[in-house]
């Protein structure tokens, strides 16, 4: 019964066959021998097929390679673009905050300076400040001088003739 059961098991799982392969195979019945020969012939036929890969399969292979390369490129670029988008967003919101801040500062500045201006003007009304409104009487008006004819550039050069300074030779 034991030998029988041994015969059955290798049929059920190939693993067992391989695991028991160290054991002598001679006791094995001709049926298993037949199977072995069959296997060999199958492998042979496969090998012979591989050597004759059809053209369409080759082109598929090329397609696969090129498409995976393309996919790689696309992934890289999409990652790049994503990064760039995130960066622009960040810069944008940063700059927008900056703009808002500057606008606020500008408003603050205008408000303060104009308020001070108004305060100063209001203070002039108080007599103790001794400030008075300017009048033309306190203004000096200068008569515009008679327009002088422009000297031409050449004349200027002539008058400013360069005279070499005489230096003693032994200086």
């Amino acid at each position: 019964m034991q030998s029988r059961s041994r015969q059955v098991t290798p049929l059920k799982g190939k693993k067992r066959v391989s695991s028991n392969s160290t054991k002598p195979r001679k006791s094995v019945t001709p049926i298993s021998k037949k199977r072995q020969t069959n296997k060999v012939s199958m492998i042979e036929s496969l090998e012979s097929r591989r050597s004759k890969i059809p053209g369409w399969l080759k082109s598929f292979k090329i397609l696969e390679n090129s498409s995976s390369f393309l996919a790689f490129c696309l992934i890289c670029s999409s990652l790049g673009i994503y990064g760039w988008i995130v960066l622009t967003q960040q810069t944008w919101s940063q700059q927008y905050r900056n703009l808002e801040n500057l606008q606020r500062q500008e408003r603050d500045f205008t408000v303060t300076s104009e308020t001070i201006k108004n305060q100063l003007a209001e203070e002039t009304k108080i007599k103790e400040t001794d400030l008075i409104a300017p009048t033309p009487e306190q203004t000096i008006f200068l008569k515009s001088s008679n327009s002088r004819p422009l000297k031409s550039a050449n004349q200027e050069l002539e008058t400013n003739n360069f005279q070499p300074i005489k230096l003693p030779l032994g200086y």
Binding site: A133, P134, T135, P136, T139
Partner: peptide, 15 residues
């Protein structure tokens, strides 16, 4: 007269 004084001064109108 007061306003004229300021006007003439501010607009730099000579006498």
């Amino acid at each position: 007269q007061k306003v004229l004084n300021s006007l003439l001064f501010q607009e730099k109108i000579p006498p």
